[in-house]
């Protein structure tokens, strides 16, 4: 099978955020991450498009995404002092959604930086 090549891909494993990586991928996994360092290579090669996990888990049991969203929203809405935390290994677009959700919830909002 012909591998798809993505040029100038960006690696977000560490704060260097190198954006000159050449990825060779099929539909399921990345086979090569040229120019990436040893950490970047394992970052790219260890994530796949396989369905390794259930869509969601509720109390440890597999559940659908829709159910999980409903339960998550319920817990957050019912809480008196919810906390929104993390936001390192994710996109800015998701981070903005997190801040918007925290604003709506009146939540505590914090990132890895505070560690």
């Amino acid at each position: 099978m012909e591998l798809k090549v993505i040029e100038n891909a960006t690696c977000t494993f560490c704060g260097c955020v190198c954006d000159d990586i050449e990825l060779h991928a099929d539909d399921v996994r990345i086979h090569q991450a040229k120019k990436a360092c040893v950490l970047g290579k394992s970052w790219f090669l260890n994530h796949t498009a396989e369905k390794k996990y259930p869509d969601a888990l509720i109390d440890g049991q597999p559940a659908s995404l829709d159910e999980a969203i409903e339960v998550a929203a319920n817990h957050l809405y019912e809480a008196d002092m919810p906390l929104v935390y993390g936001m390192s290994n994710t996109t800015c677009e998701a981070q903005k959604e997190c801040v918007a959700m925290a604003d709506l919830l009146g939540a505590l909002l914090d990132s890895h930086t505070s560690l």
């Binding site: 999980a68 800015c92 998701a94």
Partner: peptide, 18 residues
């Protein structure tokens, strides 16, 4: 209580990173 599996950022989800 709830885990939701999501696409890894930059590998299978587009966007921006600083």
């Amino acid at each position: 209580r709830v885990h939701i599996t999501t696409a890894p950022a930059g590998i299978a989800a587009p966007g921006t990173g600083y």
